[in-house]
Simulated scan of single mutants.
Amino acid sequence: MLTVESLKKSYDDTTRRSSRRSSGQGTRVYAVGGVDFEVHAGELFTLLGPSGCGKTTTLRAVAGLERPTEGRVTLGGTVLFDSAHGINVHANRRGLGMVFQSYAIWPHLSVFKNVSFPLEVMPRAKRPGRKEIQERVEHALDVTELGAYTSRPATKLSGGQQQRLALARALVTRPELMLLDEPLSNLDAKLRETMRFELKRLQRELNLTAIYVTHDQAEALVMSSRIAVMNKGRVEQIGKPREIYTKPATRFVAEFIGTSNFMEAKVVSVSGSEVRVDTAQGRLVARGVEVAPAVGATVLISIRPECVDLSRERRGNVPNEWAGTVLTRAFMGDVVDHIVGVGDLEIHNRSNPNLSIAPGTEVHFSVAPDKVILVPLD
């Protein structure tokens, strides 16, 4: 549905004026350094990454609020931007719905008027009749569960209701594509968690196609059909949430999505999809490896804390079992985190709260071979 190709956005580096004067050349800084992705109809596609990674700039380029330096953006059969042919459709003609981080509701208007406003200011040739505006506004308010607040001033709504009002205002125009720029970041933690499921419900029920920008990993994992993890203006990996979490393509992805235990290892044998590696602390077996490295290669091992099975007793009949000592533990409510020392290495374990082992206790832990992830070294 939406295709973004070789998108770049650069700015002058104003911090290096003296060097530009001496060299006679400008320095370009790329906020987006060549991004490619495709959004399919009916999916919620998330741009995920830390502050400054280029995700919001990419979204604004799709919206027409930023003019890219290079690239091409197409929606269906319509070219919205093409640097090679000088095409740049104005933002108000792209037919996109957008929900901002700040909601941007009009405080002097009622809930109904906030939602009807985009329809009322349409060009006369495209503007719906009064009856259709009434029906579309009521439908948008009903699906966002704001039907009981039509005459209420927008400022008298709660934070969650204001967020849904901004969404209703975007929905009422029936856009081909919705753009959501961190719409939940201003909500408190409990309400944010509730609204994740509300937004996902609406997206599925209305079969919306949307691009969602966030730095919140949990938000991305809960809501997304697919995720593009961005870093320094580029896409590191695109995939479904489970794939991104269980099979990170780079160290950055493995570190940014959740937490992980890392260690370098040397490949000692490869048999089909089974790879045996040696680390400074001992041997590990990895299974289900899709692209096996060469024997003798150095790789990075990633093991998620919840995949570390901790026990006070040695079992002996399981692969990848090591001995260690609990260094510290932390009760987190729904889980208990243990840090286990193995030589100079510290292994992070995340367990059911029923398991809580005191620091100083000798323990054994194991990792299933299919949970040992081989990550290419950067």
Rank of each mutant, 00 (worst) to 15 (best):
T74R: 05
G42C: 03
G282P: 01
A140C: 13
R169L: 11
F256Y: 13
A228E: 11
R60W: 01
S158R: 05
I339F: 12
G71W: 03
V253W: 08
V342M: 00
P107Q: 15
H85S: 07
V318D: 08
P118E: 08
G147W: 08
F256C: 11
S224H: 05
V73D: 09
T250D: 10
I373T: 14
N261M: 12
Q203F: 01
G34N: 10
R17I: 03
L171T: 10
P305Y: 04
M122V: 01
Q161L: 09
P68R: 11
M178A: 09
T150F: 10
S6E: 05
M1I: 00
T69D: 12
T209N: 15
L7P: 02
A84D: 07
L109Q: 04
K371Y: 08
T194G: 07
A330S: 08
R312K: 14
L374S: 10
G316S: 11
G52K: 05
D36N: 10
L202I: 06
M178R: 08
W106G: 06
V363A: 10
D378P: 08
G76A: 10
S151P: 01
V291F: 00
T259H: 04
L199Q: 07
V79S: 02
V375T: 11
E70L: 03
L75Y: 15
E145S: 12
T250M: 04
E236R: 05
A249C: 12
K8Q: 06
N88V: 00
T246M: 13
L206M: 11
D142G: 09
E182F: 03
G76D: 09
S51T: 11
G296I: 00
R127H: 11
R93G: 14
T214P: 01
N231V: 03
F117R: 13
S22K: 12
S151K: 14
R93V: 01
E243R: 06
T46G: 02
G316P: 07
N207P: 00
K240G: 15
G343W: 06
E362H: 13
S83R: 11
A41H: 12
E205S: 06
E274H: 08
K8E: 12
L119K: 08
G95A: 15
R60C: 10
A218I: 12
P369R: 09
I357C: 01
T56P: 02
R93Q: 13
S356D: 14
H364Y: 15
T279E: 10
T78P: 00
L374N: 03
V308H: 09
V270Q: 14
E66W: 02
L327H: 07
V213F: 00
S110L: 12
T328C: 05
T194A: 06
T78R: 13
L300M: 15
M263S: 04
V275D: 06
G71E: 07
T69E: 15
R174H: 06
V73N: 05
E264H: 06
S23G: 09
G129Y: 01
L199H: 12
